[in-house]
Structure formats: C-alpha cells, structure tokens
Design a protein around this nucleic acid. Structure first.
Length: 209
DNA sequence: GCTCTAATAT
DNA sequence: AATATTAGAG
C-alpha cells in the first residue's frame, strides 16, 4: 500500500555520518541542534493517558535517532573508547535534554554490539583496547558502506531498507557481489566484511552531499 | 558522595 | 528489542 514510505524520518538526510558534527572536537563549540531537524531529543508519548489531568509530566523513552547516534559515535571517536565515559560523551554531544544515564545505557548497548562484531562470546572478557579497535573498524565500515550505498543508489535508484538495516546497532554485512574481473582486489573487498581488516580508507571527501 | 559499569526490569 | 532503572564497585 502506499507508495509513500511512512518512515518516521521523512526529511532524514542520507549520508553525512561523521561529516556533520561540528560539536564533536571542541566542547566550547556548543552547537545547538536545528529545531526543524530530527536531531532534538525526541520523546515518545505513551498513548493511553486516560483521565483529564493535563499533567504532561510523563516519563518518556529517549529515541536514539541516526543524528543522535552519529554524535554519540563522534564523541567516542574523539575521546577514545578508553576514556569515553558517559559524562564526557554527554558533554561532547551537547544535546539538551539528554541525561548521563541516557548515554550510559546507549554506551552499554554499543559495547555489546562491538563485542558481537568481534565474534566474542557474551561471557568473554574484552580488553578496552580490543573494543577500541572494534570501534574504529566499525566507524570505517559505516563510512565505507555509506559511500558504496551512494554509488549504488545512483545507479539502481532508491533502496528502501538499506538505511534501516543500519539503524542503530545492526551487525549487517552487505555481501556485494564484486565483479569477478579482479582477483586480489575482489578478495580484499570481500574480506572487508568480517572484523580485523585494516583497509578501505574512506579518504574520499566525496561523501559530501 | 559521585561516577562508571554490569545486571536487571519494563 | 530498545531503553530505563537498579545494584554493586571504584
């Protein structure tokens, strides 16, 4: 039904992961989020408020949008997972309304996500350095994926669900069928999916929209 | 006393 | 499943 996608973020600007984040880097920047953007702290209003009291003092769950997650990732990159503590991350993100506990919860989930990427067991101890590496890889992977998506999107048209797959914390590896014309090159690209792969230098500033 | 992290609850 | 809340440790 409907050809139009009911996505919650109709105006979501694709691309620009680490590109748009002037807040990260120097805390003295104090970058306010655009009011018309989805960057603000979105609150979910639990439907079912019977009774009249207009008391809108309802607790609401924070919805981590792509923009918020981008800021989160950028903060981690600048602080380093080792020194990335909720308080510091919160300061770098500079999102009004966000609390230290919001960040702590998301950080916990992100750590679990990273260790899964490493194929580590849920009960396995992971060194901070190991997570740091996984984080860096994850960031590079995301950047590379976005670049590829741009290229593919231009040729194949709009792809619904591609971004959705990335959403927030989704270990997904796009098995792109690389042309079989190149041997080593294709192998390197294919091997880039699993962790522990130092390559794919997204030094392409063409990710600019 | 405050903050971080892991476990647990909703 | 995603986020909040709690409990324990530093």
């Amino acid at each position: 039904m409907g050809a139009a996608s009911p996505g919650p973020a109709p105006g979501a600007a694709p691309g620009a992961v680490a590109a748009a984040a002037p807040a990260a880097g120097v805390p003295s920047g104090s970058t306010q989020l655009e009011p018309s953007s989805d960057a603000g702290v979105e609150e979910e209003q639990p439907a079912g408020e019977a009774g009249g009291a207009g008391g809108s003092g309802r607790k609401s769950r924070l919805v981590w949008t792509q923009e918020l997650h981008n800021r989160f990732i950028n903060a981690l990159s600048h602080l380093g997972l080792k020194n990335a503590v909720p308080k510091s991350i919160l300061a770098l993100m500079n999102v009004e309304g966000m609390t230290r506990e919001n960040v702590a919860s998301h950080l916990q989930k992100y750590r679990l996500y990273l260790r899964r990427l490493g194929g580590l067991s849920d009960r396995d101890r992971v060194d901070a350095d190991a997570l740091q590496r996984l984080h860096e890889q994850n960031v590079q992977q995301m950047a590379a994926q976005q670049v590829l998506q741009h290229s593919l999107a231009a040729m194949q048209g709009p792809h619904p669900g591609v971004l959705a797959a990335m959403g927030i914390g989704l270990g997904d590896r796009p098995q792109l069928t690389v042309s079989t014309s190149s041997g080593p090159a294709a192998a390197a690209a294919a091997a880039a999916a699993p962790p522990l792969t130092a390559a794919a230098a997204p030094a392409t500033p063409t990710d600019r929209q």
